[in-house]
Every structure is written in structure tokens, then in C-alpha cells.
């Protein structure tokens, strides 16, 4: 059997703990094939990890939270604490976004300074303003997205 067949068996969830000829063949192959071994680890532990945040007991506060959300959806009053929590939750990514934008501006500036050197033969006169415009456009979009997200939530 080739690697493709073993990878299919891994995705089918072949149980290595079962005493079958298929399981034995796969186990032997995994001992000698590093790429199938890596594939098996990603699939098996990936699936296990993806299922690990599942719940098995009820959240006793869920019904009340749903009631609050439902009743407030018309008035919009009770959604404020939730909004604060959301802002706190998104603070790290927003800080990251701001840092990325600043980094973009700084890098853009560095590139423009470099490309706008008069002794660079290949750079035409118009290149620098075009690049600058692209940079501005990208930054406008980013801040508009952040603003939209904040106002929409």
C-alpha cells in the first residue's frame, strides 16, 4: 500500500488500538514514514483538540442571557454591558491593527524614501506618488473597517 491509501485510512479514523490487519499495517507504515506520521498526528490530535472545547453540561445562565438579549433587542438598552465586554475582548486585535497600520506607514515611508532616490535609474518620476496613494488607500480601508466594526457592535 502507498502513502495515499494510509492517509485515507487515517482520515477514515482507523482505530490503531483495534487488533486488525489494517491497523497493524498502518502502525508499521507509520513507524517508517515520517510524512504519514505527521499527517496522522495532525488529523488525530487536531480532531481531538477541535472537540475539546465542547460542552457536556448545561450553562445555567444561558436561558436568562437569551431572555435578556431577546427582550433588549428592540430597545437596545440591555446590550450595553455586552458591548463593553466586546470592546474589552477586541482591544488586543485592535491594538494589533493599529500597530500594523503604523508599521505599514513607517515601512511605506522607508520604501518611498528608498525608491524616490534620484540616482535610482529604473524609478520614474511618477512612481513615488502612486505608491504613496496605494498606501493611503490601504490605511483608509483599515481604519474604516475598524470604525465600522466598532459602530456595528
Amino acid at each position: 500500500m502507498d502513502c495515499k491509501t494510509f492517509e485515507e485510512q487515517i482520515l477514515d479514523g482507523l482505530d490503531l488500538n483495534k487488533d486488525t490487519s489494517g491497523a497493524k499495517a498502518l502502525e508499521e507504515h507509520l513507524a517508517s514514514c515520517s510524512s504519514c506520521k505527521a499527517f496522522q498526528q495532525v488529523v488525530y490530535s487536531g480532531l481531538e483538540s477541535m472537540g475539546s472545547g465542547r460542552r457536556s453540561v448545561n450553562d445555567p445562565e444561558l436561558f436568562q442571557s437569551i431572555q435578556n438579549k431577546r427582550l433588549s433587542s428592540g430597545s437596545g438598552i440591555a446590550s450595553r454591558p455586552n458591548q463593553v465586554a466586546k470592546i474589552v475582548r477586541i482591544s488586543a486585535p485592535v491594538a494589533m491593527a493599529a500597530a500594523s497600520v503604523l508599521l505599514g506607514i513607517w515601512l511605506g515611508g522607508r520604501i518611498l524614501t528608498y525608491t524616490a532616490q534620484p540616482n535610482e535609474e529604473t524609478v520614474s518620476v511618477n512612481t513615488a506618488p502612486e505608491l504613496y496613494a496605494l498606501e493611503i488607500h490601504m490605511n483608509d480601508e483599515s481604519s474604516e473597517f475598524i470604525e465600522n466594526y466598532l459602530s456595528g457592535n
Partner: peptide
């Protein structure tokens, strides 16, 4: 609620989002 939450979590892999979506 466990069924709905777990399906959402399976797709989103984020407990806050899964909780919000379960309510919705």
C-alpha cells in the same frame, strides 16, 4: 443548548462566538 453550542463551537472553534451565536 448543548447540541446548539457544540455545533457552533465545532465550526467556530471559539467559545465566546459560539456562546453569542447559540443565544442568537
Amino acid at each position: 443548548q448543548i447540541l446548539v453550542y457544540n455545533v457552533c463551537y465545532g465550526f467556530l472553534q471559539n467559545s465566546h462566538d459560539a456562546q453569542d451565536l447559540t443565544q442568537d
